[in-house]
Design a protein around this nucleic acid. Structure first.
Lengths: 106, 106
DNA sequence: TTTATGTGCAACTATTCGGTTTCGCAAGTT
DNA sequence: AACTTGCGAAACCGAATAGTTGCACATAAA
């Protein structure tokens, strides 16, 4: 079981769940109403999101409210950092190709 | 076949490939040397990356140089935008939970 | 106490995924 | 022309994935 954040956001339904609970905590039933799947399927997604700490639970009577652990999303942002420098300069990927080819040609 | 950028970066090997060719175009053989897999496996990853336009090819004789289409990475950054506001303000996810619970309690 | 509701978990299924092995082909080299 | 090298594609395989159905259990309402 891999269960890292990149695998977690790979699924479109999970991304939608993340967006849904980003602003307001929601119960599995309430979340499931927004998708064409069963509550159990949503529950499975929530388990995966919980396992990689993207999501938080808060029991309230017999209901469980799920909310986004927004801090965790920074990890994706952090990974993107290494590329940010590339797309922000005038030296784009085309220049890379050309310089590499030139080098190979000698 | 889903083949979107989020599914593409879900695999750790593919993320490593992306990092590897971000600065310099490389051939499949050269890329494969960095991993404990066959060249064919790398070739498959490259096909997936090419299909979602994360990667560019440049034929050079019988060699094919692959390089990162860094512009495409912005799409991930763009998706993160909706959460950036959340983690940058003092209102973090704990506040969300509390305010939601307060509302429910009436 | 009985019934309804909200939930997680287990078992099963079809599909996808990442990998290997084998092959064919094109481009260089001898 | 024969050989080597670099590559992609196809066939196959075991594992993981996303979904379903069915169940058990706790909480709340009747």
């Amino acid at each position: 079981m891999r269960r890292d954040i990149f695998q977690a956001i790979a699924d479109p339904t999970r991304r939608a769940i993340i967006t849904l609970i980003a602003l307001q905590a929601m119960t599995p039933n309430a979340i499931a109403e927004n998708f064409n799947t069963t509550r159990q399927a949503v529950s499975k997604h929530l388990r995966i999101l919980t396992e990689c700490e993207l999501v938080q639970q808060e029991q309230q009577g017999r209901e469980i409210y799920y909310s986004l652990q927004v801090e965790k999303m920074k990890e994706i942002d952090k990974w993107l950092d290494q590329f940010r420098a590339l797309w922000e300069t005038r030296f784009n990927q085309l220049d890379n190709v050309l310089s590499t080819l030139k080098k190979k040609k000698k």
